Simulated scan of single mutants.
Amino acid sequence: MTAPKPQRRARRIAMTPEEVDAFLAAERTCRVATNGTHGPHATPLWYLWDGGNLWLTSLSRSQRWTDLMNDPRIAAVVDAGHDYGELRGVELRGTVEVVGEVPRTGEPHPELERVEQAYADRYTGGQVVVDGRHAWLRLRPEKITSWDFRKIPQS
């Protein structure tokens, strides 16, 4: 696996890798942008960050899924903060790959066992939900950009 490209701009306010991991572990919703035939499509999703991959589960009969099967390039943003001086976030860019069967029916898949349980622990009280309508996508980021406006010197 290739490491993501280093951030070139706004490095002064960039998060460290440890801060990125902590931030992505704490927040719960990302906004995913796909390339559709009629232009960009952005939707919120729950996600799981495992320290190197962003895991997404998506309805396999959705515009997002159709877009990604035609063009697997994706951008996902997780952000937080209300006032200017507390804004922070992470953008992850790359291509997604499908992991497991489509739609997910619960067939044994060693790679998904830990992902599904961690996702269930995070969002559904520990109960793994397999509904026969969703499928898993893995984003191995090619580029990660982060910002934390709390690092801007206050005057």
Rank of each mutant, 00 (worst) to 15 (best):
Ser146His: 07
Lys143Gly: 00
Thr37Phe: 12
Met15Ala: 05
Ala75Gln: 14
Asp21Arg: 13
Ala22Val: 04
Arg133Ser: 12
Gly132Gln: 03
Ala25Trp: 13
His41Phe: 14
Tyr47Cys: 01
Gly51Val: 10
Ala76Gln: 03
Val99Ser: 09
Thr37Ala: 15
Leu112Gly: 10
Val20Phe: 06
Val99Tyr: 09
Ala118Met: 11
Lys151Trp: 06
Arg9Val: 09
Pro141Lys: 03
Ala75Glu: 15
Val128Leu: 02
Lys5Gly: 00
Glu113Thr: 15
Trp55His: 08
His134Arg: 15
Leu59Met: 08
Tyr123Asp: 03
Glu142Cys: 02
Gly85Asn: 11
Val102Thr: 14
Gly81Phe: 07
Glu27Met: 14
Ile144Cys: 06
Gln63Leu: 14
Tyr84Met: 14
Pro6Thr: 13
Pro44Ile: 11
Pro108Ser: 08
Glu86Ser: 15
Glu18Ile: 03
Val78Tyr: 04
Ser60Asn: 13
Gly125Trp: 09
Gly94Met: 06
Leu54Cys: 11
Asp50Ala: 08
Leu87Glu: 10
Glu107Asp: 12
Glu97Trp: 02
Thr43Ile: 15
Arg133Phe: 13
Trp65Asn: 02
His41Ala: 12
Val78Leu: 02
Cys30Ile: 05
Arg73Ile: 00
Arg138Glu: 07
Ala26Tyr: 02
Leu139Val: 02
Val96Leu: 08
Asp71Ser: 11
Arg150Val: 07
Leu68Thr: 01
Glu111Pro: 00
Leu139Ser: 02
Glu97Arg: 15
Asp83Glu: 15
Arg133Asp: 10
Tyr47Met: 05
Thr105Glu: 14
Ser155Gln: 10
Pro103Glu: 05
Gln154Trp: 10
Arg8Pro: 01
Gly106Leu: 12
Leu92Glu: 05
Ala3Trp: 01
Leu139Trp: 03
Asp50Val: 06
Gly36Met: 09
Glu86Cys: 10
Pro108His: 12
Ala120Trp: 12
Ala80Met: 05
Lys5Pro: 00
Val78Trp: 05
Glu18Val: 07
Pro103Lys: 04
Ala25Lys: 15
